[in-house]
Design a protein around this nucleic acid. Structure first.
Length: 469
RNA sequence: GGUGAUGUAGCCAAGUGGUAAGGCAGCGGUCUGCAAAACCGCCAUCGCGGGUUCGACUCUCGUCAUCACCUCCA
């Protein structure tokens, strides 16, 4: 049974989907005015991993996410560069696809842009007005936050404190239009020439930020969904407002389980532009040659915990992942001389570790404990690789189990296809002969040559094996 | 000021009312012609100070420190 920590109730709850084998899941996507940063990547990976685990447990997952492609940052950026908003958003939407591919993030079932659901947004807003939850003010439409019973519960904010805390940070012009400082825009008037806008019952304008997620979730998943995810910073105000809008409109519970991922720190500091430690995924992929290590680091930390990103943590992730890969590769090598049959004792251990893995992941996706189970499996594989005799069925089961469990973390290629040149092939053959003749100086010479070409040669009881460095 | 987190070995990181998983690094062995890989062993008393308890790292009170959120930042 899966348990998840629900931000709404502040506790772990038994997970039960609305439909028996289907999970509806909405995850807030990025605003596409730049390359996504490592924090966006963490969020995408965290929820991709959660999705993969649901799938591993036999659920079908209907995963919907958005691109925010209309907002101030985009408009400003377009203005600065003298291009249209669409030029900016198309570029970075494409970059998102390109950059998340090497991280093995599954595409959403539906990924929609805000601008693709404008008619839905307009009718959603109209309904809110009709129900008395929203009002028009000089071309803007605001939601009456206080009118929605339970506003602020998600983020555990007291309404009066909110107002006090926000004082001095509110746009006075906007404040003047609002009935209450807590009210938030669901539609904003926009009459500047050359700036993207749509015709609406309230004049030219564009959607407020929060409305797109409510609309898309409802449009693609229904009035009540199983899981809604995003960064912890979105709990307030973004998700708080989503709940208010959605539930005001339908009178039904919007989301059963609110899941929020923790932040990424850079060298123990918050990542921010002002600190100059802002890292985009795009840059990382260019600088670092092993994207799976990035995925490993980002997906094996429990999703609610902060991740400290640094050269050290990345290096450590690389070493850990390599240990898993090496075990896989070495066991795979042993398959060559495996015998028919199976080893009951080893298979029983395999199943035991698999159970441990499941128990860990069932506990709010406790990836660290799940990883501990994987390392038990690795030790088992290493020991079994060294055994005098290994049986084909058991070795296969071990390899398949390692693959299946790592797949939950999104690490799918434990053994990359590695090609040798004809010369390298020939050198390996010469080395076998040299060793047969006990000509160790020659065999060492060849080993050194290959090493310079990043081919690592190892001698085992079953003969010579090699891999790329 | 309000709200919510976190503080466990050199590093990453689990966990629990009964004397601390796992990984990395380190040290010592085994195996190997040498090496590599691997295996075995060693390596912490849980921020600080009270309290409750037969017993706390785990409960409670206080304290210190770090961090996040409090109107558009994942």
């Amino acid at each position: 049974m899966i348990h998840v920590y629900n931000t709404l109730t502040h506790q772990k709850e038994i997970f039960k989907s609305i439909q028996p084998n289907l999970i509806t899941m909405y995850v807030c996507g990025p605003t596409i005015y730049n390359y996504i940063h490592i924090g966006n990547a963490r969020s995408a990976i965290a929820f991709d991993t959660i999705r993969r685990y649901f799938e591993f447990r036999g659920y079908e997952v209907n995963y919907v996410s958005n691109f925010t492609d209309v907002d101030d940052k985009i408009i400003n950026r377009a203005h600065e560069e003298g291009v249209s908003e669409a030029t900016i958003t198309e570029k970075y939407a494409q970059a998102f696809e390109n950059d998340t591919l090497p991280l093995n993030i599954k595409p959403a079932t539906v990924r929609s842009k805000a601008t693709e659901v404008i008619p839905d947004i307009i009718s959603f807003v109209s309904e809110l007005i009709a129900k008395g939850y929203a009002y028009e003010a000089d071309g803007d439409v605001y939601f009456r936050a206080r009118q929605f019973k339970g506003y602020g519960i998600l983020a555990h904010q007291d309404l009066n404190e909110l107002e006090a805390g926000a004082s001095g940070r509110l746009d006075p012009e906007e404040l003047a239009k609002k009935e209450d400082a807590l009210d938030f825009a669901v539609w904003k008037s926009e009459n500047r020439p050359g700036v993207i806008s749509w015709d609406s019952p309230w004049g030219n304008g564009r959607p407020g930020w929060h409305i797109e997620c409510s609309v898309m979730a409802q449009k693609y998943l229904g009035n009540t969904i199983d899981v809604h995810g995003g960064g912890i910073d979105l709990a307030f105000p973004h998700h708080t407002n989503e709940i208010a809008q959605s539930e005001a409109r339908t009178g039904q519970t919007f989301v059963h389980y609110w899941l929020h991922n923790g932040f990424v720190n850079i060298n123990d500091e918050k990542m921010s532009k002002s600190l100059g430690n802002f890292i985009t995924l795009h840059d990382m992929l260019e600088r670092y040659d092993d994207p799976m290590t990035i995925r490993y680091l980002l997906s094996t930390t429990q999703y609610r915990r902060p991740i400290n990103y640094s050269e050290d943590t990345l290096t450590q992730a690389r070493v850990e992942l390599d240990r898993i890969r090496t075990a896989y590769r070495n066991l795979h090598f042993r398959m060559k001389d495996s015998k028919d049959g199976r080893n009951e004792a080893v298979e029983s251990d395999i199943n035991e570790y698999k159970k441990q893995f499941i128990a860990a992941m069932d506990d709010d996706f406790n990836t660290q404990n799940a990883l501990a189970a994987i390392f038990e499996l690795i030790a088992l594989a290493n020991t079994y690789s060294e055994a005098a005799i290994i049986q084909r069925d058991t070795a296969m089961l071990l390899l398949e189990t390692m693959t299946a469990l790592m797949q939950v973390f999104g690490i799918e290629t434990l053994m990359p296809v590695e090609q040798l040149t004809v010369e390298q092939q020939s050198l390996l053959e010469q080395r076998v002969i040299a060793r047969q003749n006990k000509d160790f100086s020659e065999s060492d010479r060849i080993r050194d040559i290959l090493k310079l070409q990043d081919i690592i040669v190892e001698d085992t009881a079953q003969g010579q094996r090699w891999h790329k460095a």
